[in-house]
Design a protein around this nucleic acid. Structure first.
Lengths: 167, 167
DNA sequence: CTTGGAAAGTCAACAAGGCTGACATAAAAT
DNA sequence: ATTTTATGTCAGCCTTGTTGACTTTCCAAG
Protein backbone atom coordinates (compact mmCIF):
# COMPACT_ATOMS: atom_id res chain seq x y z
CA UNK A 1 0.00 0.00 0.00
CA UNK A 2 1.84 3.02 1.30
CA UNK A 3 4.38 3.37 4.04
CA UNK A 4 3.85 7.08 4.47
CA UNK A 5 7.17 8.02 2.94
CA UNK A 6 7.62 10.32 0.01
CA UNK A 7 10.17 9.48 -2.73
CA UNK A 8 12.75 11.74 -1.09
CA UNK A 9 12.72 9.50 1.97
CA UNK A 10 11.11 11.99 4.25
CA UNK A 11 8.08 10.64 5.97
CA UNK A 12 4.83 12.37 5.23
CA UNK A 13 1.81 12.55 7.40
CA UNK A 14 -1.36 11.25 5.88
CA UNK A 15 -3.73 12.58 8.39
CA UNK A 16 -6.84 11.11 6.92
CA UNK A 17 -9.81 10.70 9.18
CA UNK A 18 -9.14 6.98 9.07
CA UNK A 19 -5.56 7.38 10.20
CA UNK A 20 -6.62 9.56 13.07
CA UNK A 21 -9.43 7.24 13.99
CA UNK A 22 -7.00 4.38 14.26
CA UNK A 23 -4.87 6.46 16.56
CA UNK A 24 -7.89 7.19 18.71
CA UNK A 25 -8.84 3.54 18.94
CA UNK A 26 -5.26 2.59 19.66
CA UNK A 27 -5.32 4.99 22.61
CA UNK A 28 -8.53 3.43 23.86
CA UNK A 29 -7.36 -0.17 23.69
CA UNK A 30 -3.85 0.59 24.88
CA UNK A 31 -5.12 2.40 27.96
CA UNK A 32 -7.07 -0.69 28.87
CA UNK A 33 -3.87 -2.70 28.70
CA UNK A 34 -2.03 -0.02 30.58
CA UNK A 35 -4.36 -0.27 33.58
CA UNK A 36 -5.15 -3.98 33.42
CA UNK A 37 -2.31 -5.31 35.57
CA UNK A 38 -2.54 -2.74 38.38
CA UNK A 39 -6.32 -3.14 38.34
CA UNK A 40 -5.95 -6.83 39.14
CA UNK A 41 -3.61 -6.16 42.04
CA UNK A 42 -5.79 -3.37 43.37
CA UNK A 43 -8.86 -5.53 43.15
CA UNK A 44 -7.22 -8.26 45.22
CA UNK A 45 -6.53 -5.76 47.96
CA UNK A 46 -9.85 -3.97 47.83
CA UNK A 47 -8.59 -0.77 46.27
CA UNK A 48 -9.40 1.03 43.04
CA UNK A 49 -7.67 3.15 40.47
CA UNK A 50 -8.13 6.25 42.57
CA UNK A 51 -5.98 4.67 45.28
CA UNK A 52 -3.37 3.78 42.72
CA UNK A 53 -3.13 7.34 41.49
CA UNK A 54 -2.83 8.72 45.01
CA UNK A 55 -0.19 6.19 46.00
CA UNK A 56 1.73 6.78 42.81
CA UNK A 57 2.00 10.51 43.20
CA UNK A 58 2.67 10.39 46.92
CA UNK A 59 5.53 8.03 46.17
CA UNK A 60 6.64 10.22 43.31
CA UNK A 61 6.62 13.47 45.24
CA UNK A 62 7.05 12.29 48.79
CA UNK A 63 5.94 14.81 51.38
CA UNK A 64 3.60 16.53 48.96
CA UNK A 65 0.70 18.51 50.35
CA UNK A 66 -2.94 17.64 49.85
CA UNK A 67 -3.46 20.72 47.73
CA UNK A 68 -0.63 19.83 45.41
CA UNK A 69 -1.94 16.32 45.03
CA UNK A 70 -5.38 17.71 44.24
CA UNK A 71 -4.13 19.79 41.37
CA UNK A 72 -2.10 16.93 39.94
CA UNK A 73 -4.98 14.50 40.10
CA UNK A 74 -7.62 16.98 39.00
CA UNK A 75 -10.34 15.82 41.36
CA UNK A 76 -12.18 17.49 44.22
CA UNK A 77 -10.84 17.38 47.73
CA UNK A 78 -13.88 15.39 48.81
CA UNK A 79 -13.10 12.75 46.24
CA UNK A 80 -9.43 12.61 47.14
CA UNK A 81 -10.15 12.71 50.83
CA UNK A 82 -12.28 9.61 50.70
CA UNK A 83 -9.43 7.71 49.11
CA UNK A 84 -6.77 9.26 51.30
CA UNK A 85 -8.71 8.48 54.45
CA UNK A 86 -8.85 4.77 53.70
CA UNK A 87 -5.15 4.73 52.83
CA UNK A 88 -4.28 6.43 56.12
CA UNK A 89 -6.61 4.17 58.12
CA UNK A 90 -5.05 1.14 56.48
CA UNK A 91 -1.60 2.38 57.38
CA UNK A 92 -0.34 2.84 53.83
CA UNK A 93 -0.05 6.60 53.98
CA UNK A 94 1.14 8.87 56.76
CA UNK A 95 -0.11 12.43 57.05
CA UNK A 96 2.19 14.75 58.99
CA UNK A 97 1.40 18.29 60.01
CA UNK A 98 3.51 20.74 58.02
CA UNK A 99 6.66 22.15 59.59
CA UNK A 100 6.60 25.68 58.27
CA UNK A 101 2.88 25.92 57.69
CA UNK A 102 0.93 23.90 60.19
CA UNK A 103 -2.24 24.05 58.12
CA UNK A 104 -0.65 21.83 55.53
CA UNK A 105 -0.41 18.08 55.68
CA UNK A 106 2.61 16.38 54.19
CA UNK A 107 1.90 12.96 52.80
CA UNK A 108 4.26 10.01 52.91
CA UNK A 109 4.02 6.34 52.14
CA UNK A 110 4.63 3.97 55.04
CA UNK A 111 6.57 0.79 54.45
CA UNK A 112 3.34 -0.99 53.65
CA UNK A 113 2.46 1.84 51.26
CA UNK A 114 5.80 1.52 49.54
CA UNK A 115 5.18 -2.18 49.22
CA UNK A 116 1.87 -1.64 47.44
CA UNK A 117 3.35 1.05 45.25
CA UNK A 118 6.13 -1.26 44.23
CA UNK A 119 3.75 -4.08 43.40
CA UNK A 120 1.65 -1.75 41.26
CA UNK A 121 4.46 -0.01 39.46
CA UNK A 122 6.42 -3.22 38.94
CA UNK A 123 3.45 -4.63 37.08
CA UNK A 124 2.90 -1.48 35.08
CA UNK A 125 6.58 -1.05 34.31
CA UNK A 126 6.79 -4.62 33.09
CA UNK A 127 4.01 -3.96 30.61
CA UNK A 128 5.64 -0.75 29.51
CA UNK A 129 9.04 -2.36 29.22
CA UNK A 130 7.71 -5.19 27.10
CA UNK A 131 5.94 -2.74 24.82
CA UNK A 132 9.07 -0.61 24.51
CA UNK A 133 11.15 -3.66 23.68
CA UNK A 134 8.75 -4.81 21.04
CA UNK A 135 8.38 -1.41 19.45
CA UNK A 136 12.04 -0.50 19.58
CA UNK A 137 13.97 2.52 20.81
CA UNK A 138 13.01 4.86 17.99
CA UNK A 139 9.39 4.17 18.67
CA UNK A 140 9.77 5.06 22.33
CA UNK A 141 10.92 8.57 21.47
CA UNK A 142 7.94 9.04 19.19
CA UNK A 143 5.54 7.57 21.69
CA UNK A 144 6.65 10.02 24.34
CA UNK A 145 6.61 12.96 21.94
CA UNK A 146 3.04 12.36 20.79
CA UNK A 147 1.78 11.73 24.32
CA UNK A 148 3.30 14.95 25.54
CA UNK A 149 1.85 16.91 22.64
CA UNK A 150 -1.57 15.50 23.45
CA UNK A 151 -1.70 16.85 27.00
CA UNK A 152 -3.51 20.00 27.98
CA UNK A 153 -0.93 22.79 28.27
CA UNK A 154 -1.46 23.13 31.98
CA UNK A 155 -1.00 19.42 32.61
CA UNK A 156 1.93 19.37 30.29
CA UNK A 157 3.70 21.98 32.37
CA UNK A 158 2.88 19.98 35.45
CA UNK A 159 4.17 16.82 33.81
CA UNK A 160 7.46 18.47 32.91
CA UNK A 161 7.83 19.94 36.35
CA UNK A 162 7.35 16.45 37.77
CA UNK A 163 9.94 15.10 35.40
CA UNK A 164 12.50 17.57 36.67
CA UNK A 165 11.67 17.01 40.32
CA UNK A 166 13.18 13.62 40.38
CA UNK A 167 15.95 12.11 38.29
CA UNK B 1 28.78 9.87 27.61
CA UNK B 2 26.47 7.50 25.86
CA UNK B 3 24.03 8.05 23.04
CA UNK B 4 22.09 4.90 23.64
CA UNK B 5 23.66 3.02 20.78
CA UNK B 6 25.76 -0.08 21.04
CA UNK B 7 28.97 -0.33 19.03
CA UNK B 8 27.20 -2.25 16.32
CA UNK B 9 25.01 0.78 15.66
CA UNK B 10 21.89 -0.77 17.06
CA UNK B 11 20.12 1.48 19.50
CA UNK B 12 19.79 0.24 23.02
CA UNK B 13 16.99 0.94 25.38
CA UNK B 14 17.89 2.34 28.74
CA UNK B 15 14.86 1.18 30.53
CA UNK B 16 15.61 2.61 33.91
CA UNK B 17 12.77 2.70 36.37
CA UNK B 18 12.74 6.45 35.95
CA UNK B 19 12.39 6.21 32.19
CA UNK B 20 9.52 3.81 32.53
CA UNK B 21 7.90 5.88 35.22
CA UNK B 22 7.92 8.89 32.96
CA UNK B 23 6.26 6.83 30.26
CA UNK B 24 3.59 5.78 32.73
CA UNK B 25 2.92 9.32 33.82
CA UNK B 26 2.87 10.50 30.23
CA UNK B 27 0.16 7.93 29.53
CA UNK B 28 -1.83 9.17 32.49
CA UNK B 29 -1.69 12.85 31.60
CA UNK B 30 -2.09 12.27 27.88
CA UNK B 31 -5.21 10.22 28.38
CA UNK B 32 -6.73 13.10 30.27
CA UNK B 33 -6.07 15.35 27.30
CA UNK B 34 -7.33 12.69 24.97
CA UNK B 35 -10.74 12.59 26.62
CA UNK B 36 -11.02 16.24 27.64
CA UNK B 37 -12.65 17.63 24.50
CA UNK B 38 -15.26 14.91 24.01
CA UNK B 39 -16.02 15.04 27.73
CA UNK B 40 -16.98 18.69 27.42
CA UNK B 41 -19.30 18.03 24.50
CA UNK B 42 -20.84 15.02 26.21
CA UNK B 43 -21.41 16.99 29.36
CA UNK B 44 -23.28 19.70 27.49
CA UNK B 45 -25.65 17.11 26.10
CA UNK B 46 -26.05 15.11 29.29
CA UNK B 47 -24.06 12.10 28.21
CA UNK B 48 -20.96 10.40 29.57
CA UNK B 49 -17.95 8.55 28.26
CA UNK B 50 -19.87 5.33 28.09
CA UNK B 51 -22.19 6.92 25.55
CA UNK B 52 -19.22 8.11 23.56
CA UNK B 53 -17.73 4.65 23.39
CA UNK B 54 -21.00 3.11 22.28
CA UNK B 55 -21.62 5.77 19.64
CA UNK B 56 -18.08 5.48 18.38
CA UNK B 57 -18.13 1.76 17.82
CA UNK B 58 -21.64 1.71 16.42
CA UNK B 59 -20.51 4.31 13.91
CA UNK B 60 -17.34 2.36 13.27
CA UNK B 61 -18.99 -0.99 12.70
CA UNK B 62 -22.47 0.00 11.64
CA UNK B 63 -25.04 -2.72 12.06
CA UNK B 64 -23.01 -4.47 14.74
CA UNK B 65 -24.82 -6.72 17.19
CA UNK B 66 -25.11 -6.04 20.89
CA UNK B 67 -22.96 -9.05 21.66
CA UNK B 68 -20.18 -7.85 19.41
CA UNK B 69 -20.31 -4.42 20.95
CA UNK B 70 -20.13 -6.00 24.40
CA UNK B 71 -16.93 -7.81 23.63
CA UNK B 72 -15.33 -4.73 22.12
CA UNK B 73 -16.24 -2.52 25.05
CA UNK B 74 -15.54 -5.10 27.70
CA UNK B 75 -18.47 -4.28 29.95
CA UNK B 76 -21.52 -6.24 31.05
CA UNK B 77 -24.67 -6.25 28.98
CA UNK B 78 -26.53 -4.57 31.83
CA UNK B 79 -24.06 -1.73 31.78
CA UNK B 80 -24.16 -1.36 28.03
CA UNK B 81 -27.90 -1.75 27.96
CA UNK B 82 -28.47 1.20 30.23
CA UNK B 83 -26.43 3.41 27.93
CA UNK B 84 -27.92 1.94 24.79
CA UNK B 85 -31.44 2.42 26.07
CA UNK B 86 -30.99 6.13 26.59
CA UNK B 87 -29.40 6.49 23.17
CA UNK B 88 -32.31 4.68 21.55
CA UNK B 89 -34.89 6.65 23.54
CA UNK B 90 -33.17 9.88 22.53
CA UNK B 91 -33.28 8.82 18.91
CA UNK B 92 -29.53 8.64 18.39
CA UNK B 93 -29.36 4.91 17.84
CA UNK B 94 -31.67 2.59 16.00
CA UNK B 95 -31.96 -1.06 16.98
CA UNK B 96 -33.23 -3.30 14.19
CA UNK B 97 -34.18 -6.92 14.63
CA UNK B 98 -31.66 -9.14 12.87
CA UNK B 99 -32.52 -10.41 9.39
CA UNK B 100 -31.02 -13.87 9.58
CA UNK B 101 -31.25 -14.27 13.33
CA UNK B 102 -34.16 -12.40 14.77
CA UNK B 103 -32.80 -12.63 18.30
CA UNK B 104 -29.99 -10.35 17.38
CA UNK B 105 -30.27 -6.60 17.24
CA UNK B 106 -28.33 -4.67 14.66
CA UNK B 107 -27.36 -1.22 15.82
CA UNK B 108 -27.19 1.87 13.65
CA UNK B 109 -26.77 5.56 14.25
CA UNK B 110 -29.63 7.79 13.22
CA UNK B 111 -28.88 11.15 11.62
CA UNK B 112 -28.89 12.72 15.05
CA UNK B 113 -26.54 9.99 16.23
CA UNK B 114 -24.19 10.64 13.32
CA UNK B 115 -24.25 14.30 14.22
CA UNK B 116 -23.15 13.62 17.79
CA UNK B 117 -20.53 11.17 16.63
CA UNK B 118 -19.12 13.73 14.26
CA UNK B 119 -18.99 16.41 16.92
CA UNK B 120 -17.17 14.07 19.27
CA UNK B 121 -14.71 12.64 16.80
CA UNK B 122 -14.03 15.99 15.18
CA UNK B 123 -12.92 17.30 18.54
CA UNK B 124 -10.85 14.23 19.30
CA UNK B 125 -9.31 14.10 15.85
CA UNK B 126 -8.32 17.74 16.09
CA UNK B 127 -6.42 17.04 19.27
CA UNK B 128 -4.78 14.00 17.73
CA UNK B 129 -3.92 15.86 14.56
CA UNK B 130 -2.30 18.72 16.46
CA UNK B 131 -0.27 16.28 18.53
CA UNK B 132 0.83 14.38 15.42
CA UNK B 133 1.85 17.61 13.72
CA UNK B 134 3.86 18.76 16.67
CA UNK B 135 5.58 15.43 17.21
CA UNK B 136 6.29 14.78 13.57
CA UNK B 137 5.72 11.81 11.26
CA UNK B 138 8.45 9.59 12.70
CA UNK B 139 6.96 10.00 16.12
CA UNK B 140 3.54 8.93 14.91
CA UNK B 141 4.87 5.58 13.76
CA UNK B 142 6.49 5.03 17.12
CA UNK B 143 3.45 6.17 19.01
CA UNK B 144 1.27 3.67 17.23
CA UNK B 145 3.80 0.87 17.59
CA UNK B 146 4.13 1.28 21.35
CA UNK B 147 0.39 1.60 21.88
CA UNK B 148 -0.27 -1.55 19.95
CA UNK B 149 2.39 -3.44 21.86
CA UNK B 150 0.82 -2.32 25.11
CA UNK B 151 -2.58 -3.88 24.41
CA UNK B 152 -3.70 -7.20 25.80
CA UNK B 153 -3.27 -9.81 23.07
CA UNK B 154 -6.99 -10.40 22.80
CA UNK B 155 -7.76 -6.70 22.44
CA UNK B 156 -4.90 -6.33 20.05
CA UNK B 157 -6.39 -8.92 17.74
CA UNK B 158 -9.71 -7.16 18.04
CA UNK B 159 -8.06 -3.84 17.30
CA UNK B 160 -6.41 -5.19 14.17
CA UNK B 161 -9.59 -6.83 13.02
CA UNK B 162 -11.33 -3.46 13.39
CA UNK B 163 -8.58 -1.80 11.42
CA UNK B 164 -9.13 -4.15 8.53
CA UNK B 165 -12.90 -3.89 8.63
CA UNK B 166 -12.89 -0.38 7.37
CA UNK B 167 -10.27 1.49 5.38
C1' DC C 1 -42.55 -30.97 17.00
C1' DT C 2 -40.53 -30.43 21.16
C1' DT C 3 -36.99 -28.87 23.77
C1' DG C 4 -32.32 -27.11 24.97
C1' DG C 5 -29.65 -23.31 24.84
C1' DA C 6 -28.14 -18.86 22.92
C1' DA C 7 -29.17 -13.88 22.38
C1' DA C 8 -31.22 -10.21 24.20
C1' DG C 9 -33.62 -7.48 27.48
C1' DT C 10 -35.13 -6.20 32.19
C1' DC C 11 -35.33 -5.58 37.28
C1' DA C 12 -33.06 -4.99 41.59
C1' DA C 13 -29.34 -4.01 44.39
C1' DC C 14 -24.85 -2.59 45.19
C1' DA C 15 -20.03 -0.19 44.93
C1' DA C 16 -16.49 2.97 43.32
C1' DG C 17 -15.49 7.29 42.47
C1' DG C 18 -16.70 11.40 40.37
C1' DC C 19 -19.53 15.83 41.66
C1' DT C 20 -21.80 20.04 44.52
C1' DG C 21 -22.89 22.50 48.66
C1' DA C 22 -22.46 23.55 53.40
C1' DC C 23 -19.90 23.85 57.35
C1' DA C 24 -15.85 23.41 60.95
C1' DT C 25 -11.26 24.21 62.44
C1' DA C 26 -6.68 25.83 62.68
C1' DA C 27 -3.28 28.75 61.24
C1' DA C 28 -1.34 32.09 58.34
C1' DA C 29 -1.64 36.63 56.31
C1' DT C 30 -3.28 41.15 56.17
C1' DA D 1 -8.98 41.65 64.69
C1' DT D 2 -10.38 40.04 60.49
C1' DT D 3 -9.91 37.60 56.37
C1' DT D 4 -8.02 34.05 53.72
C1' DT D 5 -6.14 29.52 53.11
C1' DA D 6 -5.61 24.49 53.84
C1' DT D 7 -7.76 20.77 55.28
C1' DG D 8 -11.35 17.77 56.70
C1' DT D 9 -16.11 16.18 56.96
C1' DC D 10 -21.18 15.39 56.26
C1' DA D 11 -24.89 14.72 53.12
C1' DG D 12 -26.59 13.78 48.80
C1' DC D 13 -26.44 13.18 43.86
C1' DC D 14 -24.81 11.01 39.25
C1' DT D 15 -22.47 7.82 36.09
C1' DT D 16 -20.92 3.60 35.19
C1' DG D 17 -19.29 -0.45 36.54
C1' DT D 18 -20.69 -5.03 38.99
C1' DT D 19 -23.75 -9.64 40.23
C1' DG D 20 -27.81 -12.36 40.27
C1' DA D 21 -32.29 -13.72 38.85
C1' DC D 22 -35.66 -13.95 35.52
C1' DT D 23 -38.24 -13.56 30.92
C1' DT D 24 -38.84 -13.59 26.01
C1' DT D 25 -37.55 -14.84 21.60
C1' DC D 26 -36.10 -18.02 18.49
C1' DC D 27 -32.53 -21.12 16.20
C1' DA D 28 -31.28 -25.77 15.84
C1' DA D 29 -30.79 -30.50 17.21
C1' DG D 30 -33.00 -34.49 18.64
Amino acid sequence: MNDGRAPGGQALLFLTDEQLRKGIEAMFFAYRGFTADPDRILDERGYGRAHHRAVHFISRTSGTTVNNLLSILGVTKQSLNRVLRTLIEDGLVESRVGKRDKRERNLFLTDAGEELERALSDAQRERMKAAYREAGPEAVQGFRAVLEAMMDPELRRRFNRLKDDVS
